[in-house]
Simulated scan of single mutants.
Amino acid sequence: MATLPNPLPRLAADPSGRSLGLALPLGRLIDATAEGPWHEPLLWHGAYDAAPGAWTALGSPAARVGLLPVLVQTGDCQDALDKWGLRPALMSYPGDHDAEEVLAEFWEGEEIAEWDTAGDVLAPFGPDWPGPAPAGTLTADPAVRAAEVADSLLADGSLPTHGSYLEEMRLALVPARRSADIPAAIGWTGPLNHENDVARLGAVLRSWEDRFGIRVVALTPDQLVVSVAAPPTTTSDAEALAAEHFAFCPDNITQGEHDTLRTYAAEEVLGQRMWSFWWD
C-alpha cells in the first residue's frame, strides 16, 4: 500500500489552509494518542461547534486535497480529542481485509445459540452466517446525502437508534483515501470491546460504501454515524442488512431499544438515510 500524502502538517505554518486552496476557521491539529504524540497530525478540527452548512462549505473543498470531513464530538473541552485514546499504531489497512469474512467471523463468534435459546432474537437467521445483503439502489448522490445528514445532526443532533443526542459537534478533516477509512486513519477506538483493529470494521464500511452509498459522518468516543444513499427498500433486504449490523455492532440489538432483529430492521434499516452504531 502506497502511503497517502498527509496535507495536515502544512497547516502548522499555514493555519488558514490557503496554501491548500482552503479558507479554514480557527482550529487545531490533533496528534495525541494513547501512546503519546503521533509522528504527524491525525486530524484537524474547528475550534468552535459547527453549524449547518459547514460540511459543504469546508468539507467539500478539503476533500479535493485529500482531507475528508467528519463531525467529532468534543464536549465543552478544547482538549477532548486528546482524551479519546486514539491508537493508530493498532490499526492495519481496511483494504487488507475481506468484509464478508470479517462479518462471518463476528457473527459466528457471538455464540448465538447459547444466548438466543428460543431462536427468536435474530430470526429469520440462526447460528450460521447468512451471507451479505444485496446492494441497494441509489436514491441520492452519496456526497449530497452525507451533507444532508451532517446538517440534520448539527441542527437537531438526535440519533434514532439509541434515542440519544449528539451535542457540541465540530467539523474535522482527516487524511484518508475514502470516507470508510476515517476511523482507522485516526486510530479510533470506539469499538475496542468488540474489535481492537478498527481497520477490519473499515473493510465492512468500504463494502457498505460500495453497496449502500454510505459515508462516515460523525464520531464520538464510542459512536459511529453514517449517511446512507442507497438504503434497502424491502423487508427481506433490510433483515439481511440488519444481520450485517448485528455482526458489525451487536450492542445495537443486544443493548438497544429493539428486542429482535426483525424489529430493528423495520425501524432502523428499512429506507433509513442514517445508521448509527454504539459499542458499550
Score class of each variant (00 low, 15 high):
Ser179His: 07
Trp129Thr: 10
Leu122Phe: 11
Thr137Tyr: 03
Val121Arg: 09
Thr139Asp: 12
Met169Asp: 00
Tyr165Ser: 13
Ala150Tyr: 11
Glu168Asn: 15
Ile182Arg: 06
Ala123Pro: 03
Ala135Trp: 06
Val144Glu: 14
Thr161Cys: 14
Val217Ile: 13
Gly213Ser: 03
Leu205Glu: 04
Pro127Gln: 05
Pro160Thr: 13
Asn193Pro: 02
Pro127Met: 01
Glu168Ala: 15
Asn193Ile: 11
Ala176Gly: 07
Ile182Met: 09
Leu153Ala: 06
Pro183Phe: 06
Pro127Ala: 14
Leu138His: 13
Pro124Cys: 09
Thr137Leu: 13
Ser152Tyr: 09
Pro142Asn: 04
Ala203Gln: 07
Arg178Leu: 02
Ala140Trp: 00
Ala140Lys: 12
Arg145Trp: 00
Arg215Pro: 00
Ile186Pro: 00
Asp197Cys: 05
Leu153Met: 10
Asp151Leu: 10
Ile182Ser: 01
Glu167Phe: 08
Glu195Gln: 15
Val149Cys: 04
Ala172Val: 02
Glu167His: 14
Asp210Gly: 09
Thr137Val: 14
Leu205Arg: 08
Ala135His: 12
Asn193Ala: 13
Phe125Asn: 08
Val144Lys: 08
Thr161Ile: 02
Ala176Lys: 02
Ala123Asp: 14
Ala176Cys: 04
Ser152Val: 02
Ala155Ser: 15
Pro142Asp: 05
Pro183His: 10
Glu168Trp: 06
Arg145Glu: 13
Leu138Glu: 13
Arg170Met: 05
Glu168Met: 11
Val216Asn: 03
Ala133Val: 10
Met169Tyr: 00
Glu209Gly: 02
Ala184Thr: 08
Arg211Tyr: 03
Val174Thr: 02
Pro191Asp: 10
Ala123Trp: 14
Gly163Asn: 08
Tyr165Pro: 00
Trp129Ser: 09
Ala199Ser: 15
Asp197Val: 08
Val198Met: 11
Gly136Arg: 05
Ala143Gln: 13
